[in-house]
């Protein structure tokens, strides 16, 4: 088996999920310059809602793909609602407050959502029922599973759709206009409150799908899964250049690959002093590296817009 290729495939899978989650961080940052630390919790809620629905339907004789689809269709609106509510209730009143206030609020929202999830679902993890047959394909000495293929394809599709929306539709142009100059956007007749709500809702929908994907990949979902994943996706967004959509996608994929390769080779490189359980370290090493050497990120803020 080719370890290198295998780890690239694993990294691409995980990286796609990071990219989808990172898009949520970067979109919100782009429009209101807030790091929404509660975004990871939306991923968790998406996974938990979907898993509850999927588990409830697992006994029926519906086709497995349909069951997962129903789970996603339940998770997406649930997350959209939570995303909308957190902006409306917690962030909007602080729009003109010093930037530290909404940031701390975001951390608070994250803790609240975790504990609400703890109350609703208890601390026991939800398992993904064995309904999807484990299909694998062999590519050049490595193995790729059906779930991995699905995750990568769905992520690419969502990234394409989002890019089209932001760059080709009137609503997307209005989003970019609002992120550049909200006051002038208002002078164009753009209701910036609605654009900001919309941004949160789109980010939440992506997070919901990401939650289902990562839960399905690991076969498990629990109330605390959002924080580490969220921090990693945030690192990915910073790696790509926060506020930049293409950057979030690139950062996510790169971070997934770095993490997978790191986990794959760390044992060999350190004579088994460190094992693949150190996988989680790499995301944050990358984050520190970016902050030290290139704080604006790989595709960070294009300058030259002020003539």
């Amino acid at each position: 088996m080719d370890i290198f290729l295998q780890q690239i495939i694993n990294g691409l899978t995980l990286g796609s999920v990071y990219a989808i989650v990172a898009l949520g961080y970067t979109m919100v940052y782009g429009i209101i310059q807030l790091i929404n630390f509660a975004h990871g919790e939306l991923v968790m809620i998406g996974a938990m809602v979907a898993f509850s629905v999927i588990n409830a339907l697992a006994g029926t004789h519906l086709p497995p793909v349909l069951i997962v689809l129903i789970g996603v269709l339940a998770a997406v609106p649930a997350c959209m609602l939570v995303g909308y509510a957190m902006e409306r209730i917690a962030y909007r009143p602080l729009r003109n407050a010093p930037r530290l206030a909404p940031l701390i609020t975001a951390i608070g929202i994250s803790i609240i959502l975790q504990h609400v999830a703890l109350l609703v679902w208890s601390r026991n993890p939800l398992a993904f029922p064995q309904i999807i047959p484990f299909v694998t394909f062999s590519v050049g000495g490595a193995i790729i599973s059906g779930v991995q293929i699905a995750i990568i394809l769905i992520s690419v599709l969502m990234m394409g759709a989002l890019t089209f929306m932001v760059y080709r539709t009137k609503l997307g142009i209005a989003m970019r206009a609002t992120s550049q100059n909200p006051q002038v956007a208002g002078l164009m007749g753009i209701d910036i409150d609605r654009i900001i709500s919309f941004t949160f809702i789109v980010g939440a929908a992506l997070a919901a799908v990401a939650g289902v994907m990562v839960g399905t990949y690991y076969g498990i979902a629990h109330y605390g899964m959002g924080s580490l994943l969220g921090m990693k996706a945030f690192s990915a967004a910073v790696l790509g250049g926060i506020g930049n959509l293409a950057g979030a996608m690139l950062g996510g994929i790169l971070l997934g690959i770095v993490e997978a390769l790191g986990a794959g080779y760390i044992g060999d490189l350190t004579n088994n002093v460190f094992g693949s359980n150190y996988q989680d370290v790499f995301a944050f090493l990358v984050l520190i590296g970016v902050l030290v050497f290139r704080p604006s990120g790989l595709l960070g803020e294009r300058v030259g817009d002020r003539a």
Partner: peptide, 12 residues
């Protein structure tokens, strides 16, 4: 809007 094209500015 500096990062939008001329046409996108007019569309806004």
């Amino acid at each position: 809007f500096g990062q939008l094209t001329v046409e996108e500015n007019l569309a806004m």
